[in-house]
């Protein structure tokens, strides 16, 4: 953690807060190693979240295309 903090222009406390947020999200995993706390990235979780978000993005792009179709159709909404 202290080694990580040296890489960023912020205090160790600030870095700890960021890491805590990432840990809550399951994106990093913390282990204690003697006096040091090690931060391991959960690459699989990040990749999975990105892939799922991409699927939802495509789902929404489809919906938005269809909304465009509904708006272009002047009879839209009159269909029973």
């Amino acid at each position: 953690m202290s080694g990580l903090a040296r890489l960023y222009p912020m205090s160790t406390t600030a870095v700890q807060k960021h890491v805590a947020v990432l840990e809550d999200a399951g994106l990093v995993h913390l282990t204690r190693h003697g006096r040091e706390q090690l931060v391991k990235t959960e690459i699989d979780t990040i990749a999975k979240a990105q892939a799922l978000l991409a699927e939802f993005e495509l789902l929404w792009r489809g919906r938005l295309d269809r909304i465009g179709d509904v708006l272009a159709n002047r009879l839209g909404g009159d269909r029973s």
């Binding site: 990432l22 999200a25 990105q50 978000l53 938005l64």
Partner: peptide, 19 residues
């Protein structure tokens, strides 16, 4: 319809789409 911005935030599990 035009999609003008997309943000995929994997830490917050949040998807933002602006159209």
């Amino acid at each position: 319809m035009t999609v003008i911005a997309v943000d995929r935030d994997s830490a917050a599990l949040t998807l933002t789409i602006v159209s």
